[in-house]
Computed example of a mutant assay.
Amino acid sequence: MPEIVVHAVSGRSAAQKKALMQAITEAVVTHFSVAADLVVVQIVESGADSKSRGGVPFSER
């Protein structure tokens, strides 16, 4: 059972997250040759003040 975890800054809509999870599932089905109901996709969201790149929080970008 493939499991994919996506880390992202919060702020995307439910529709955007659903579309991403569907697209990832389709890619795994195609490239790993597994059934869609075996693919687990989880989106882990962080607040913009809890994530940084190069030491600069996303909330300050």
Results as ranks from 00 to 15, higher is better:
residue 3 E to K: 11
residue 3 E to A: 15
residue 3 E to F: 14
residue 4 I to R: 00
residue 4 I to P: 00
residue 5 V to N: 05
residue 5 V to R: 07
residue 7 H to L: 12
residue 10 S to I: 08
residue 11 G to E: 04
residue 11 G to T: 03
residue 13 S to M: 04
residue 14 A to M: 05
residue 16 Q to Y: 06
residue 16 Q to I: 03
residue 17 K to M: 07
residue 18 K to H: 10
residue 18 K to E: 14
residue 19 A to L: 05
residue 20 L to D: 01
residue 20 L to G: 00
residue 21 M to W: 01
residue 22 Q to R: 10
residue 22 Q to H: 08
residue 22 Q to M: 04
residue 22 Q to Y: 02
residue 23 A to R: 04
residue 24 I to C: 01
residue 26 E to T: 06
residue 26 E to D: 11
residue 26 E to L: 06
residue 29 V to H: 03
residue 29 V to S: 02
residue 29 V to C: 08
residue 30 T to R: 14
residue 30 T to W: 01
residue 30 T to H: 09
residue 31 H to G: 07
residue 32 F to D: 12
residue 32 F to Q: 14
residue 33 S to A: 13
residue 33 S to L: 11
residue 34 V to T: 12
residue 35 A to S: 14
residue 35 A to L: 11
residue 36 A to S: 14
residue 36 A to M: 09
residue 37 D to M: 09
residue 37 D to R: 05
residue 38 L to A: 13
residue 39 V to G: 02
residue 41 V to G: 04
residue 43 I to N: 02
residue 45 E to G: 06
residue 47 G to C: 06
residue 48 A to E: 07
residue 52 S to I: 05
residue 53 R to W: 07
residue 53 R to N: 11
residue 53 R to S: 10
residue 55 G to P: 02
residue 55 G to A: 12
residue 56 V to C: 09
residue 56 V to A: 13
residue 56 V to G: 09
residue 57 P to D: 07
residue 60 E to H: 15
residue 60 E to Q: 15
residue 60 E to R: 15
residue 61 R to H: 10
